[in-house]
């Protein structure tokens, strides 16, 4: 097959056409209204909305907490996926079921439940309080909420790939005298890295837009614990559609940029790992 061909398999037109059509209809068409609304602001007004110190503080919190939460999820998500795929222990099916619950719980319920657990009088909060650690109503609380909402992403991305890894490669490496650590670093890690990255970027993107669970636990103090989606909501409450869409567009741009970067990075790692 020549290098200029798209691929030998049939169905390019159908699958790509369907993808683009559905994507356009369900996602891009509604999102185009963001641009249209934002365009109602003049450049000066637009700048004033998106670059006000309060907005910038909220971006910083949203970005920082989302990155932190996604990083925690990448590390522990990989670990949980590993344990779920490779080891056996009693109650594994139950633990497996637990992983999806952050998606199933409405965000508001998660927020309320997390606040109940981590507030100064809560189950965990009351033990942290004497140590001087406050979770609820601080940026730490935002981090906890975002970790919770993004938790299933990495686990569920890594799990099938890890389960699908043929043992042969590991075995071959072992036969060739590789230590366990080397097998992990040279064989396992590169194989699941793309999936981990996918999970990371999805968890990050989801965290960036998270609103429902955060408002309950963050305390919403301007400049300290106010996340960007809350600012959007606030503007919406004041009938300021243009301001709301302007802020929303900034966040959308940020997450699109990150998703794009990760997709590129993934392709690069795959090329380096010499995958098919």
């Amino acid at each position: 097959m020549s290098a200029t061909r798209r691929g030998v398999l049939p169905g390019f037109g159908l699958s790509t056409g369907l993808t683009v059509f559905w994507l356009g209809l369900v996602v891009l068409l509604p999102l185009s209204t963001l641009g249209l609304q934002t365009a109602r602001l003049g450049p000066a007004q637009l700048w004033q909305v998106i670059a006000s110190p309060r907005a910038v503080a909220s971006y910083r919190l949203s970005l920082g907490a989302s990155l932190g939460a996604a990083a925690i999820n990448a590390v522990f998500g990989f670990l949980v996926a590993w344990v779920l795929v490779r080891y056996r222990f009693p109650g594994k099916a139950l633990v497996d079921a637990l992983v999806d619950l952050p998606f199933a719980l409405p965000t508001a319920v998660s927020g309320i439940a997390l606040t109940a657990v981590y507030s100064p009088h809560g189950w965990v909060g009351r033990f942290l309080e004497p140590l001087g650690i406050r979770v609820a109503f601080t940026p730490l609380g935002v981090l906890v909420a975002l970790t919770f909402t993004g938790l299933p992403f990495v686990i569920r991305s890594v799990e099938p790939v890890l389960a699908d890894l043929e043992p042969d490669v590991e075995e071959a490496a072992a036969l060739l005298g590789a230590t366990r650590r080397q097998v992990f670093r040279r064989v396992l890690f590169p194989a699941v890295l793309p999936a981990t990255l996918t999970g990371f970027s999805l968890a990050f993107a989801r965290a960036l837009g998270e609103y429902g669970s955060v408002v309950f636990i963050s305390g919403n103090m301007p400049f300290r614990t106010e996340v960007a989606p809350l600012l959007v909501m606030t503007r919406l409450e004041q009938f300021d559609y243009a301001g709301a869409t302007a802020l929303a567009s900034v966040m959308l741009g940020a997450s699109l940029l990150l998703l794009f970067a990760v997709n590129r990075l993934q392709r690069w790692t795959r090329a380096r790992a010499g995958a098919p």
């Binding site: 993808t19 683009v20 994507l23 996602v27 891009l28 509604p30 999102l31 209204t33 963001l34 965000t107 970027s201 999805l202 993107a205 989801r206 960036l208 837009g209 998270e210 609103y211 429902g212 989606p229 959007v232 909501m233 919406l236 559609y241 709301a244 869409t245 929303a248 966040m251 959308l252 940020a254 997450s255 699109l256 990150l258 998703l259 794009f260 997709n263 590129r264 392709r267």
Partner: peptide
């Protein structure tokens, strides 16, 4: 890459904004 990122986009859109649009 762009198409992939666009597919992921709804994850990055705050649900509130999704409703708003």
């Amino acid at each position: 890459d762009l198409l992939l990122s666009l597919i992921d986009l709804p994850f990055g859109v705050s649900p509130v904004i999704a409703g708003m649009v």
